[in-house]
Amino acid sequence: MSEHEMGFVVELSSDVKNRQRMTADFRKFITGLEEGKFLATKCKKCGKKFMPPRFTCPCGGTDLEWFEINPEGTLYTWSIVHFAPEGIAKQTNVPYVLGVIEFEDELRLAAHMKGLTSKPKVGMKVKVAPQELENGNLAYFIKPA
């Protein structure tokens, strides 16, 4: 199965920079991505790690440090989406494939999948990689490792 057949035209909807309010904390995550790094946070008070990064901790901690995670992991779960929500449907073709990658420490991240040649499988080796889009925007995708 080719990528085209799997319908991976998801560029606009995956744009992480322009589809949300940019905060100073989130800017740090984006800067990391621009440098090819996936940054997670760790609470200095209780030690809990967060991916996606949280900027405050449920323990009440507000001092969190950034650390780079290994972008390789396994596919925790997946979905092949044939009907998109209206706000997304304008910017993507269906079907598109959504994956959840599991990193070390049971940290997980959801993203579109690219580069599949067959249906996704739970447990397959995958990695997450940032990618500059044709329009200059930035996204990240889960791909077979």
Binding site: V10, S13, S14, D15, V16, R19, Q20, F26, P52, T77, W78, S79, V81, F83, A84, P85, G87, I88, T92, Y96, L98, V100, L109, A110, A111, H112, V122
Partner: peptide, 19 residues
């Protein structure tokens, strides 16, 4: 920020459990 922009509809959330 972390779910909607990836087109995760309500059927999609539950499909993640199913898979």
């Amino acid at each position: 920020r972390w779910e909607y922009i990836y087109g995760i509809s309500f059927p999609t959330f539950y499909s993640l459990y199913a898979a």
